[in-house]
Design a protein around this nucleic acid. Structure first.
Lengths: 112, 112
DNA sequence: GCCATACTTAGGTATGTGCCTAAGTATTAT
DNA sequence: ATAATACTTAGGCACATACCTAAGTATGGC
């Protein structure tokens, strides 16, 4: 069990939800205020706020309130932990391919 | 909504669970049979099998049965979709740092 | 001061998820 | 043939999660 276990767990749980992923995608472009974030979703505000709380608890997002407006932004580097974990889950075959600089072939095709 | 949306969703849902992540970590080393996979977990077999089904449905894992033994292996390249998505969620600051080859500084420190 | 705005808090519901036990089925060993 | 092994299927239970509505609480504009 690696040291970043809890952080990774929180991050993956947070990203497992499509709404939260959409929020992250939106914030990757630029910070936004809550009402701005809420607009594309047909969802009551409290529901969206809950998602923001999950993202914030996972460390993916920060926010600060100025007056009555809360601005939310993606926390740079917060996805590194996932990147790190991903790097460790390469199969021996993939590691071998890495060393040769080969793009590995998928066992079963699946268009992306 | 990108084309790999459904695949990504399935993969992230699957990886959101610690047991399933542990299975993936184990399989990254080498394929294994079900009873071998089950051993480290204090969990009834059917519960573990359910996790395997989730991983298989997400395309992260394949398995084949020879006689009464089922061998499970990690599907090479199945994590690419996550890698791809991750690459797109870089903040403008991070993109800038990429171009300069700089390792970005975390907004809030958090040891990994 | 008064009202609109921008969240926030406090509940409540419905579905999903992770786990279990009990009872199969198929395959291999004796 | 009998029995042990290696899953599999079926069903159930408890808690988590994603939503909702209704009713706050600040803050800013008039």
């Amino acid at each position: 069990m690696p040291k970043y276990y809890d952080e990774l767990d929180a991050v993956l749980r947070a990203l497992a939800d499509p709404t939260r992923r959409a929020i992250v995608e939106r914030l990757a472009k630029s910070p936004a205020v809550v009402s701005e974030l809420a607009e594309p979703f047909s969802m009551a505000l409290p529901s969206l706020m809950q998602h923001l709380r999950v993202l914030e608890n996972a460390g993916l997002v920060t926010s600060q309130k100025h007056g009555r407006v809360r601005t939310v932004s993606l926390r740079p580097g917060s996805l590194d932990v996932l990147h790190l974990w991903l790097g460790e889950q390469r199969t021996p075959a993939e590691r071998h391919a890495d060393r040769l600089g080969i793009h590995p072939i998928r066992t079963t095709p699946k268009e992306i």
